[in-house]
Amino acid sequence: MISLAQLLTALIGAVVGLVMGLTGAGGGILAVPALVYTHGWSMQQAMPVALLAVTSAALIGALEGLRRKLVRYRAAILMALSGSLPTVLGVHIAHRLSQQWLMLVFALILLFVATRLILQLRSPECNDAKRAALARINDSTGRFEWSLKTGAVIASIGGISGFMTGLLGVGGGFVIVPMLRHYTNASMHTAVATSLLVISLVGAMGVGSAVWNGASLPLVLSAVFVATTIGGMLMARRIAARLPARQVQMIFAGLLLCVAASLVLRIAG
């Protein structure tokens, strides 16, 4: 017989998958607090379960993005490689921080990222092809114009997202998507698809590192969570293809603000 915990896990997984498919991120930033609230887990307990589901669903979404030629796979691989060591460092630091400090850091980062995304949407130079960028995608080839500067920008994004993956137990997409949008001329749809590939690569390293450091994964709940997250992801990728990029970006920013507010209220309470 299905337990209440399994039903809640399935519901959370479906919502997380939907959000990931629409925004290229948001999976971990929703999954971790949701598991903490509904199951009474600590953030350290919720992180590996959330990251396993997010990583699995991201792989499915990345394959769909590759089929549609939206993924900039060279950039994704560079970000994943440059994020590998910072991911391990983040896991080590997470195990040495208190629950309150982790939640506070999480909330502050989300508020900062959401604010930057909203300001970007309000800017008259929001057009991807025209706005200035440190690393540019060639309009005719659809690929990055690779140089030392481009490589440094992409590697830096990967390093920061990798550290956040290990520290907060999230896929890193909430860092990758806004940074790709800010420092490159990638469209929102390209940023989302590329982010999903990075999440699948870096997230796998994060799960391995967490297990290596003694994290336990409840078998049944983890399996339910992974399956429903993948289902939500597949549904959302069909919806995302029909939404304007600006609308997807606004949904992402609004989501970040909601999660940040809930964490602040939990800390205050």
Rank of each mutant, 00 (worst) to 15 (best):
A241F: 00
G27T: 12
L167T: 11
L85H: 00
A50Y: 03
V192W: 01
A107M: 15
T184F: 07
I267R: 04
A186W: 05
A75S: 08
A58P: 12
A75I: 04
I160P: 00
L119T: 01
M43N: 02
T38R: 02
V177K: 10
V32P: 11
L7K: 05
L119C: 08
L217S: 09
A210H: 15
I93N: 05
A5V: 13
A223N: 03
T150Q: 09
T38C: 11
L59Q: 09
V19P: 00
A94D: 13
L51S: 08
S3R: 08
S222L: 05
L180W: 04
L18R: 02
L243I: 08
P218Q: 08
A62L: 13
A223L: 15
P48A: 14
I118P: 05
A227S: 15
A114N: 03
L11S: 14
G206N: 11
F112N: 00
K69N: 12
M179D: 01
V91P: 04
M47C: 05
A62I: 14
I93W: 12
G21A: 07
Y73H: 15
D139P: 13
A34N: 11
M188G: 03
T229Y: 10
L30A: 11
M1L: 11
A268K: 07
V113S: 06
T55I: 07
C258H: 00
L51N: 05
A53Q: 08
V88Y: 10
A245E: 07
S123Q: 07
L89V: 10
S147E: 10
H95G: 14
T23I: 14
I251N: 03
F252L: 14
L196A: 05
G24D: 10
G26I: 08
G90M: 03
G83N: 03
L52K: 01
G65V: 04
S123I: 03
Y37Q: 13
R74N: 12
L201P: 12
L97G: 09
R238F: 08
I29T: 15
L59T: 10
E64A: 13
L117Q: 15
L217P: 05
L256V: 03
A107P: 13
Q249D: 12
Q120P: 02
L108V: 15
A191M: 06
L201F: 15
